[in-house]
Design a protein around this nucleic acid. Structure first.
Length: 152
DNA sequence: GCCAACGTTGGC
DNA sequence: GCCAACGTTGGC
């Protein structure tokens, strides 16, 4: 079992959107970065745990957790010309982009803010707290997960 | 294969 | 809204 952190803009798809989905489950579509794609396709497995992070908002931080309920499979939005995530260079025989399904686990009583995360020595190695990081899907080490969970 | 230009991310 | 950081694109 592994741990991950997924970023999303709360106005686009926040944790409350996940809670509102049927079975509190949703596919994590729209990732268009190769490093993140590789993780979605190869490494993120059913049963893994995920921190749900809100980015690009007034209070960026971890707002809750979820778990992976379906292994990586082709992101169908890449084939939909109507979608913002449409990729004309991808084809069905060799899909370029992948996604997993996640199910809501928990919404934290308060946001664990990026500001707070940055102060934690246990998290110093996380890409999240480093300058210029743009990965929207990233691995979390077990001890990092624990250090964060201990705050809840 | 290099690298400048460009677009996007995301904190502030 | 600004802008630094970074990934991608495309000309050469």
């Amino acid at each position: 079992m592994a741990y991950w952190l997924f970023k999303s803009e709360p106005e686009t798809f926040g944790i409350d959107h996940l809670i509102a989905m049927s079975d509190q489950t949703e596919h994590w579509d729209g990732v268009r970065n190769y490093q993140a794609r590789n993780m979605l396709r190869d490494n993120i497995k059913k049963g893994d745990k995920v921190f749900f992070y809100h980015s690009n908002c007034k209070c960026p931080g971890i707002v809750g957790s979820a778990r992976v309920v379906k292994n990586g499979y082709p992101d169908f939005t890449q084939f939909d010309p109507e979608s913002n995530y449409y990729d004309p260079k991808s084809n069905a025989d060799n899909p370029r982009w992948f996604m997993v399904d996640i199910k809501f686990t928990k919404k934290f009583k308060q946001v664990i803010s990026l500001e707070q995360l940055k102060t934690m020595p246990a998290l110093a190695d996380m890409a999240l707290v480093r300058k210029g990081n743009r990965l929207s899907v990233m691995p979390v080490k077990e001890d990092e997960w624990q250090a964060i969970i201990d705050l809840v």
